[in-house]
């Protein structure tokens, strides 16, 4: 197992290199540059800026410089948010995004998993219909609708929660963004858990447990473990997406996460910021896919990687 993990980590290096390369040249293909403002800067100023940020060098040399810096852990300075390096921006924003995403993820697993399991155990009952119906709602109503509605109801009308802001991560400030982030995930997890549970409850080995007269709790535990597999394979990529922040949620609630950097960076041709975001997201995706595979092997003894 350990050697498998090591192999997987090693094989992530060429993948990352490929992603970085493609992203680097793609963003350079976009017209314009980081210092193209509405009123063009003086030629001399522009020249100096380009020199400072090494944008005057041939593209291939810039690529090489960037790569060698990244290997040392240096993501370079941000072009737009002066005085900050990309590393510093992530050091501030990533914990915010990860807190929100992590909470939303745990919330989604707990609530979605429970709802899905209950719905499966009471298939075609009222609660089953409620869960499947709400699941459809959670998926179809976009977060930029849910978020303002929550802000108006919970923030303004009832005034139970602060409308927006990070406030050093105070629990009350987290409630609404976490709910908005978690809702669609709850819907998906509930639906997947329900489907997988139903399939498992009908399987022959559950029939064996029933024929042995075992209590329903034992049967539920066995069915849940089997049902966890498809849900986990969905949760891997979902976790990567949640933990790297959401543009919409962070913008609406005015949160200093990293979700908005991707959009802002791309629009402003902040090359280093875009590249930094790409690397962070790629690392998360690779990491969580590995986590999924490891969890799979732990849950299902038939899967062996050695």
């Amino acid at each position: 197992m350990l050697s498998y993990i090591l192999r997987r980590l090693l094989s992530a290096i060429p993948t990352l290199l490929l992603i970085v390369t493609i992203a680097f040249f793609l963003i350079r293909l976009a017209p314009g540059g980081p210092f193209d403002l509405e009123r063009p800067l003086e030629a001399k100023v522009m020249e100096n800026l380009n020199k400072i940020y090494q944008l005057d060098k041939p593209l291939i040399e810039q690529y090489w410089l960037y790569l060698s810096a990244v290997v040392r852990g240096d993501f370079g300075p941000s072009f737009i948010l002066r005085d900050f390096t990309v590393g510093e921006l992530f050091a501030r924003g990533l914990p915010v995004s990860m807190t929100l995403g992590g909470l939303a993820l745990s919330f989604a697993i707990l609530v979605g998993g429970t709802l899905g399991a209950v719905a499966a155990l009471r298939q075609n009952s009222l609660i089953d219909y409620v869960v499947t119906g709400m699941g459809a709602l959670g998926l179809t109503i976009p977060n930029f609708v849910v978020a303002p509605v929550l802000q108006i109801v919970l923030g303004l009308a009832l005034a139970w929660l602060p409308i927006a802001g990070w406030n050093g991560g105070a629990p009350l400030n987290l409630v609404m963004p976490v709910i908005v982030l978690a809702l669609p995930q709850i819907a998906v997890v509930a639906r997947m858990t329900r489907a997988a549970m139903i399939e498992n409850l009908r399987s022959n080995h559950i029939r064996t447990l029933r024929s042995l007269g075992l209590p329903s709790l034992t049967i539920v535990v066995h069915a849940l473990r089997g049902a966890a597999l498809p849900v986990i394979s969905y949760l891997g990529p979902a976790a990567a997406a949640l933990l790297t922040g959401s543009v919409v949620v962070e913008t609406i609630f005015g949160l200093p996460g990293i979700g908005r950097y991707f959009v802002e960076g791309a629009l402003n041709r902040d090359y280093t910021l875009v590249m930094g975001t790409v690397v962070v997201v790629a690392v998360f995706v690779l990491l969580f896919n590995l986590v999924v595979d490891i969890l799979y092997a732990i849950i299902d003894p038939r899967i062996r990687y050695d």
């Binding site: 022959n204 559950i206 064996t208 024929s211 042995l212 473990r225 849950i299 299902d300 038939r302």
Partner: peptide, 20 residues
């Protein structure tokens, strides 16, 4: 009664045990 006094074995030995 079932599992103690009345028990049953099935046609599908390959899938009747929990693989996990």
């Amino acid at each position: 009664y079932r599992g103690s006094k009345l028990t049953m074995i099935f046609q599908e030995p390959m899938t009747s045990l929990d693989p996990l």
